[in-house]
Amino acid sequence: MKLVPLGDRVVIKQLEAKETTKSGIVLPNQAQEKPQEAEVVAVGPGGMVDGKEVKMQVKVGDKIIYSKYAGTDVKLNLDEEYIIVKQSDILAIVE
């Protein structure tokens, strides 16, 4: 199955949470903070959204930082988890 986003939507795959702190303390799953960094998997075509022209500024493979509570979680094939966000919920591209 393949996700194809519509309009100004972007499909992202969240990067793994860090399992240890900088000082080397191992964190249990419950204590790990959900990372806001992800990789772009698919990008919608852009176009007219709410009467305004939207040009897509991200591309597949970009590493991005997105808003903490943005998006819709989607689970495919029982083991693949993705998040669908609007381009406006993407805060930065990590270079």
Rank of each mutant, 00 (worst) to 15 (best):
residue 38 A to L: 04
residue 25 I to N: 03
residue 12 I to S: 13
residue 90 I to H: 05
residue 14 Q to T: 13
residue 78 L to N: 15
residue 76 L to M: 15
residue 60 V to E: 05
residue 12 I to G: 13
residue 5 P to Y: 03
residue 37 E to V: 15
residue 46 G to R: 14
residue 9 R to C: 06
residue 62 D to H: 02
residue 30 Q to K: 15
residue 4 V to G: 02
residue 16 E to S: 07
residue 95 E to I: 00
residue 31 A to T: 01
residue 18 K to A: 10
residue 58 V to L: 04
residue 20 T to V: 12
residue 10 V to P: 01
residue 7 G to F: 08
residue 27 L to W: 02
residue 31 A to K: 10
residue 19 E to L: 08
residue 74 V to G: 07
residue 45 P to C: 08
residue 53 E to A: 14
residue 82 Y to K: 10
residue 11 V to H: 00
residue 55 K to N: 14
residue 82 Y to C: 10
residue 22 K to Q: 04
residue 1 M to A: 15
residue 35 P to R: 12
residue 21 T to A: 07
residue 82 Y to F: 15
residue 86 K to S: 09
residue 30 Q to M: 09
residue 22 K to Y: 07
residue 11 V to A: 06
residue 24 G to P: 09
residue 1 M to Y: 14
residue 45 P to N: 12
residue 67 S to H: 02
residue 85 V to F: 03
residue 86 K to W: 08
residue 41 V to F: 04
residue 82 Y to T: 07
residue 38 A to T: 06
residue 90 I to Q: 02
residue 5 P to I: 01
residue 6 L to D: 05
residue 21 T to R: 10
residue 13 K to S: 08
residue 73 D to N: 14
residue 47 G to A: 13
residue 35 P to A: 13
residue 54 V to N: 06
residue 81 E to Y: 12
residue 38 A to Y: 05
residue 21 T to K: 06
residue 4 V to N: 06
residue 93 I to H: 04
residue 34 K to Y: 02
residue 57 Q to C: 06
residue 90 I to D: 04
residue 73 D to I: 11
residue 51 G to M: 12
residue 79 D to P: 05
residue 10 V to T: 00
residue 67 S to W: 00
residue 21 T to M: 00
residue 88 S to N: 05
residue 7 G to D: 05
residue 53 E to K: 15
residue 66 Y to L: 14
residue 22 K to G: 10
residue 5 P to A: 10
residue 89 D to S: 15
residue 81 E to M: 11
residue 87 Q to L: 11
residue 16 E to N: 10
residue 2 K to A: 14
residue 73 D to T: 13
residue 29 N to L: 11
residue 31 A to C: 02
residue 70 A to Y: 00
residue 39 E to S: 06
residue 13 K to Y: 11
residue 54 V to F: 12
residue 65 I to Y: 12
residue 77 N to G: 11
residue 34 K to S: 06
residue 85 V to R: 10
residue 50 D to A: 06
residue 45 P to F: 03
residue 82 Y to A: 06
residue 52 K to Q: 15
residue 74 V to S: 05
residue 68 K to C: 09
residue 81 E to H: 14
residue 9 R to S: 08
residue 9 R to K: 11
residue 92 A to R: 14
residue 56 M to Q: 05
residue 24 G to N: 05
residue 90 I to T: 05
residue 36 Q to W: 08
residue 5 P to W: 07
residue 9 R to M: 06
residue 64 I to K: 04
residue 65 I to L: 12
residue 61 G to Q: 01
residue 27 L to H: 02
residue 46 G to Y: 05
residue 51 G to P: 06
residue 2 K to T: 02
